[in-house]
Amino acid sequence: MNIRIGQGFDVHTFGEGDHVMLGGVRVPHERGIVAHSDGDVVIHALCDAMLGALALGDIGRHFPPSDPQWKDADSLLFLRHCTRLLDGQGGWRVINADITVVCERPKVGPHADAMRERLARELGIDVNAVSVKATTSERMGFTGRGEGIAAMAVCLLGKA
């Protein structure tokens, strides 16, 4: 089997709102995300990992924030596009994905399984091939001060 590994990273600041989207799941929070789309850092990092594995650029190249059609877009649209793009590049697919969310709040743990299930369903893989975990930055930096949220993703692609 041919394999490729990709990694991705995304970050957004908090702003007005009452929830954040993480891994396609609406997570209640006292703040929202400042972003052109829905600002789902989990999906954005995963998309960058998928695109990076095949040297296809980054999410901003495929969905430029300057393009008004992506204003407030559901990031699941980006994930679906990336999945189709991989398949169109010779039948690549995600074998597994490992994602880490970095923030002090909201608490990710109670929502991690729902995120894993949503991402696995979208990717067409077993839920046991998707990991979503979280860490804090020990109150250091912008995430530690509660100014924003970040996510890192690694994925393994394969094709027969």
Score class of each variant (00 low, 15 high):
residue 28 P to V: 06
residue 30 E to D: 13
residue 30 E to F: 13
residue 30 E to Y: 12
residue 31 R to I: 01
residue 31 R to Q: 14
residue 31 R to G: 01
residue 32 G to F: 07
residue 32 G to T: 02
residue 33 I to Q: 05
residue 34 V to R: 14
residue 34 V to H: 01
residue 34 V to S: 11
residue 35 A to K: 04
residue 36 H to S: 12
residue 36 H to N: 12
residue 36 H to T: 15
residue 36 H to V: 15
residue 36 H to L: 03
residue 37 S to C: 07
residue 37 S to W: 07
residue 38 D to H: 09
residue 38 D to W: 00
residue 38 D to T: 13
residue 39 G to D: 01
residue 39 G to H: 08
residue 39 G to W: 00
residue 40 D to T: 04
residue 40 D to Y: 02
residue 41 V to P: 11
residue 41 V to G: 09
residue 41 V to H: 10
residue 42 V to K: 08
residue 42 V to L: 08
residue 43 I to M: 11
residue 43 I to D: 07
residue 43 I to K: 09
residue 44 H to K: 13
residue 44 H to A: 14
residue 44 H to Q: 14
residue 44 H to C: 06
residue 44 H to P: 00
residue 45 A to F: 01
residue 45 A to L: 06
residue 45 A to H: 05
residue 45 A to R: 03
residue 45 A to D: 05
residue 46 L to K: 04
residue 46 L to P: 09
residue 46 L to W: 08
residue 47 C to Y: 04
residue 47 C to Q: 04
residue 47 C to A: 14
residue 47 C to R: 03
residue 48 D to W: 01
residue 48 D to E: 11
residue 48 D to Y: 02
residue 49 A to F: 02
residue 49 A to R: 01
residue 49 A to L: 03
residue 50 M to C: 14
residue 51 L to K: 04
residue 51 L to T: 03
residue 51 L to C: 10
residue 52 G to C: 04
residue 52 G to A: 01
residue 52 G to D: 09
residue 53 A to Y: 02
residue 53 A to L: 08
residue 53 A to M: 05
residue 53 A to P: 08
residue 55 A to W: 02
residue 56 L to R: 12
residue 56 L to I: 02
residue 56 L to F: 06
residue 57 G to K: 08
residue 57 G to H: 09
residue 57 G to P: 11
residue 58 D to W: 02
residue 59 I to S: 14
residue 59 I to Y: 03
residue 59 I to T: 15
residue 59 I to F: 07
residue 60 G to H: 14
residue 60 G to E: 13
residue 60 G to I: 01
residue 60 G to V: 04
residue 61 R to G: 15
residue 61 R to Q: 13
residue 61 R to S: 12
residue 62 H to L: 12
residue 62 H to Y: 05
residue 62 H to C: 07
residue 64 P to A: 07
residue 65 P to L: 05
residue 65 P to K: 12
residue 65 P to Q: 10
residue 65 P to H: 11
residue 66 S to A: 15
residue 67 D to S: 13
residue 67 D to V: 00
residue 67 D to K: 06
residue 67 D to L: 03
residue 68 P to H: 07
residue 68 P to D: 12
residue 69 Q to R: 15
residue 69 Q to N: 03
residue 69 Q to Y: 03
residue 70 W to Q: 02
residue 70 W to E: 02
residue 71 K to F: 13
residue 72 D to M: 11
residue 72 D to I: 00
residue 72 D to Y: 06
residue 72 D to F: 08
residue 72 D to V: 03
residue 72 D to Q: 13
residue 72 D to L: 10
residue 73 A to T: 11
residue 73 A to K: 04
residue 74 D to Y: 02
residue 74 D to I: 00
residue 74 D to A: 12
residue 74 D to G: 03
residue 74 D to R: 07
residue 74 D to V: 03
residue 74 D to F: 04
residue 75 S to E: 12
residue 75 S to I: 04
residue 75 S to P: 05
residue 76 L to Y: 01
residue 76 L to R: 15
residue 76 L to P: 00
